[in-house]
Nucleic acid binder design. Structure first.
Length: 582
DNA sequence: ATCGTAGGCGCC
DNA sequence: AAAGGGCGCCTACGAT
């Protein structure tokens, strides 16, 4: 059907109705290259994947999600949103904005879909068969869904995706390091595939265990709204009985908690747990309040409502699955994000994350990823040498003539912008012994402070925005500049670490699939792989091999005289996430 | 009534 | 002198 080879770009769109019969009414899936287009069924997409292994150009995770839902897991992708975020920073974008940026068109007044009203009837014929309007912009109606109204339009939409990918590749080629940025674009695109699969598969979670854990914190499941109110009041009473009689304070209002504390003779600027920690012995109410807070967190965020909303079944086995939405590169530095509490499950709840019968988890996290990444991206020879040690802080401490704890605080402080306390003194030692790494951070901080954008090692644009100088005091301006400095400094390390992690993750995704294993959780520097018991050892070996492969591909050219930076994992095979030792 | 912000806390 | 970054999610609260 198509003259394509492995890795060639092929535009792919899938309409809301999925793929009907090829060319027939309702066939809204289409593929396109620069020379051919076709309406296709999802079966035909699967065949093309198996026979040609192209790199599928998709507008967003929506297409990938439709594929996964249809049971198709492709190897390669070019995700236009993911590459857009790499090139231009920021968050999600629609086709209109992506196209405009690539073509040098202003994005200040992007065409909008006008809601149909008495005077503005949408005329389906008006949109024609060209997704690009006379002014060069993408027709907003197309982006809003009109592209799926006919096979011809779907084909044109797939063709536009292909053309957009070509434009993006052109911009990557025009960068200072085309090979590296292209590698990042491909890795980030694969991460979006992984995200679609994570969202579909879900994290194995034992409902009964989860219920038991919740119950241990907040008591039994309420039978009604009224019952819930009673139980809530009972939990509040455990704190309020320590309060002055006839007083009325709302524990959920930080301001009122502050007033309450003042009434019992405790004056604080805020009521955060770490601040109250040292005041535990001052008054029994403090202890009760801290326990209440912990329970309240479970009750509101990880309680029965959370369970009911986000935990469903595996379609095959009926086992519990916690599902959320996944994004491959949200936020400043391009980390993965997840909803439904997947990225911030309380430690106590991990006891409910249990592998299916006959399956286990291979859990692996990257050891000291940020200082190792700093060594790699900065090209600091001395720091790269230190990375040879299982514990980087040991050689650093020896070099600086301080204890390990001080060395660790100093290194972390340097990366995060902290310059006070014990770290400050050791910072000077870092400057002397690891000048390249420290200067890398300082340069990022200086650039960020004046509001200039940065790019991570992998090429992601970190936008610094602009300070609103008119309504802040001189003092605030300075603190804003300092904050921007910390932000930029941190984004360079955290961002590069995120890129490296994703390269590792997508490599694992590809390698363990033949074993029947699947990644079920990505947690910034940690992978949880669900694998059949008999494949556990092989999976574990692959996870480690993939790290070495990723490290080799990610930083192939160490500075002359420097050893390659060493990366390592802490790896365990477990039946329950809580069994991980740490 | 709806919205955005702030305080707070979970994880890395 | 002092300064930690990121995210999601909850509640209260003030502004609109």
């Amino acid at each position: 059907m198509f003259d394509v080879s492995k890795g060639d770009l092929v535009g792919l769109v899938i309409g809301p109705g999925g793929a009907g019969g090829a060319g027939g009414a309702g066939a809204t899936a289409a593929v396109a290259t620069g020379t051919a287009t076709a309406s296709v069924t999802l079966d035909e997409v699967a065949t093309m994947e198996a026979e040609h292994g192209p790199r599928w150009v998709v507008w967003s995770q929506a297409t990938t999600g439709a594929l996964v839902a249809a049971g198709i897991r492709v190897a390669r992708a070019w995700d236009l949103v993911a590459v857009h975020r790499l090139l231009y920073g920021g968050w999600s974008s629609d086709p209109g904005r992506i196209w405009a940026r690539l073509n040098g068109l202003s994005t200040a007044n992007l065409p909008q879909v006008r809601p149909p009203d008495l005077f503005n009837q949408v005329d389906p014929a008006a949109a024609g068969n060209d997704p690009i309007d006379d002014d060069g912009y993408v027709r907003a109606e197309w982006a809003a869904g009109a592209w799926a109204e006919s096979p011809e339009r779907a084909a044109a939409w797939a063709r536009l995706a292909w053309r957009t990918a070509q434009l993006q590749q052109g911009w990557l080629d025009a960068s200072s390091d085309p090979a590296r940025m292209t590698a990042t674009a491909r890795s980030e695109s694969a991460a979006e595939l992984l995200c679609a699969e994570l969202a579909h598969d879900g994290l194995p979670l034992d409902r009964e265990r989860a219920e038991a854990i919740i119950e241990s914190f907040v008591g039994r499941r309420p039978r009604s709204d009224a019952d819930a109110a009673v139980l809530r009041a009972e939990r509040d009473e455990l704190v309020l009985r320590h309060a002055p009689p006839d007083s009325r304070f709302d524990l959920r209002s930080p301001g009122q908690v502050k007033s309450l504390l003042r009434r019992i003779g405790i004056e604080v600027t805020d009521t955060r747990a770490w601040r109250l920690e040292s005041l535990r012995d001052e008054h029994p109410l403090v202890e009760a309040l801290l326990a209440w807070r912990k329970a309240e967190r479970v009750a509101t965020t990880y309680g029965y409502a959370w369970l009911d909303e986000y935990v469903g079944d595996d379609p095959d086995t009926g086992a519990g699955r916690l599902r959320g939405e996944w994004s491959g590169s949200d936020g400043a530095a391009g980390r993965m994000t997840a909803s439904a509490g997947l990225h911030n499950l309380p430690g106590d709840m991990r006891g409910a994350v249990v592998a299916d019968d006959g399956w286990v988890f291979v859990r692996a996290d990257l050891g000291q990823i940020e200082p190792r990444v700093l060594a790699a991206v900065s090209g600091d020879v001395a720091l790269a040498r230190a990375s040879a040690d299982d514990d980087m802080y040991t050689p650093v401490a020896r070099q600086l003539g301080v204890d390990r704890a001080t060395a660790k605080v100093a290194v972390l402080g340097a990366m995060y912008g902290q310059t006070t306390g014990h770290g400050a003194q050791a910072l000077r030692g870092l400057q002397q012994n690891y000048p390249v790494a420290i200067e890398y951070l300082e340069a990022a901080s200086r650039t960020a402070q004046v509001g200039t954008d940065l790019r991570t090692y992998g090429g992601r644009l970190v936008r610094m925005g602009t300070a609103n100088a008119n309504d802040v005091s001189e003092r605030d301006l300075r603190s804003h500049a300092a904050a921007r400095g910390r932000y930029g400094r941190n984004a360079m390390v955290q961002g590069a670490a995120a890129e490296f992690f994703k390269l590792w993750a997508v490599t694992v995704r590809a390698r363990v699939a033949p074993l029947g294993a699947r990644i079920v959780l990505c947690l910034h520097d940690e992978l949880l792989v669900h694998t059949p018991l008999e494949s556990a050892e092989a999976t574990a070996r692959l996870v480690d091999e993939c790290l070495q492969e990723a490290a080799h591909r990610w930083a192939p050219r160490p500075v002359a005289g420097a050893p390659p930076v060493r990366f390592l994992t802490d790896l365990s095979v477990i039946g329950c996430w809580a069994d991980a030792k740490d």
